[in-house]
Design a binder for these strands. Sequence first.
DNA 1: CCCGTACCGATGCGCTCGCATCAGAACGCC
DNA 2: GGCGTTCTGATGCGAGCGCATCGGTACGGG
Lengths: 197, 197
Amino acid sequence: MPKQVDHTSRRLHIARAVCHLADERGLEGVTLRDVAAKAQVSMGAVQRCFRTKEEMLVFALEYVGELIMERIQTRLVRSPAQSAGTALGHAATEISLLRKEHRAEARVWLAFVAQAVVSKALAKTLKANYAALQEAFTRLISEADEDTHRAVPLDPRREARTLLALADGLTTHVLIGQLTPREAHDVLHTHMASLWD
Amino acid sequence: MPKQVDHTSRRLHIARAVCHLADERGLEGVTLRDVAAKAQVSMGAVQRCFRTKEEMLVFALEYVGELIMERIQTRLVRSPAQSAGTALGHAATEISLLRKEHRAEARVWLAFVAQAVVSKALAKTLKANYAALQEAFTRLISEADEDTHRAVPLDPRREARTLLALADGLTTHVLIGQLTPREAHDVLHTHMASLWD
DNA sequence: CCCGTACCGATGCGCTCGCATCAGAACGCC
DNA sequence: GGCGTTCTGATGCGAGCGCATCGGTACGGG
């Protein structure tokens, strides 16, 4: 066996470069040459890792998706000390990106969402991520609602959809500068409070 | 004076072609040549109407923005027979595009939103539209809340932000197929009900 | 009637894109 | 240590892009 290269780590390395570029100039501004330059590898290396540009983009989307999902799932793990509702609030807040160090990921995410509308390959990955997120939210809301004994219980699925859509919409509005992160947080907090407090 | 041409109507005609293409293939797939072909005019005509491609895109965004805003504003006009809350519900539903004949506009809108994150010219127009919408929502919510005498009145601005973000998020989720229009409507209806019914 | 001006459509230019190609370097195995 | 396989980076290619240009055309005023 001759020279061997760790393709997996290189693909990740390139995916990160893709995200940096997508953040700076949008998805349209991502070219193979620029990706190679940003990742400090030759164009040939990029081409060997991904047969086509779209394959590269899909991989990058999956990468960013995993990053974000992981971050949210961390918040969703209900620590003994906190209620399910609190965990949900944290998770939703995480989505609405109060922290600016995660703003870049969200910009990339938004770019991919827009692209997914016209690209089947991207749409598939995107939907899978959203479905998983909705599932997790549904479970936690159901859990939180059992703690609260109320006359008419919530419909967990519907509330999960609401929360997810709201968080997503807030994210978008923060990204384009229509809302400040603080305002988004305020909206989210009030919404959560209307459910349980 | 020699031959004269109605530039305004031609610009609108071209803007419609831009929207059709953006709907079909995304914003990236919009080229001057294709726009000219779709609009059934020569490339030269397009170039005379718009000095650069970006100028054309900005104009198209404004056009689509006006279309959508007009449609929503129509719903927001409170007819004597209906409560302010009902009007709001209709308007929000309109945003969440139950009707598939307006799906195309929303796709174009989403494409522009994603692009606006990296383009200042687009962002300016976009924010102006959102601000106007939020203003209208705020006013109507305030109105609706005065009708309902409750102990703790709502914060109209915050509720407007909530409603707008929720409607926007739902729109996105419908567009990528994560939700059906029916589910989106259900979510929106329940949210409105939690405010006033 | 005809001249000047504003429109028209076609073509060309320079550039960048994604992708293919290829000679040479690097490395594990016999 | 030679060999074969795998990796490497540079270069080429055809296509498509935005934009500039230009001769021809149609039309209104003098």
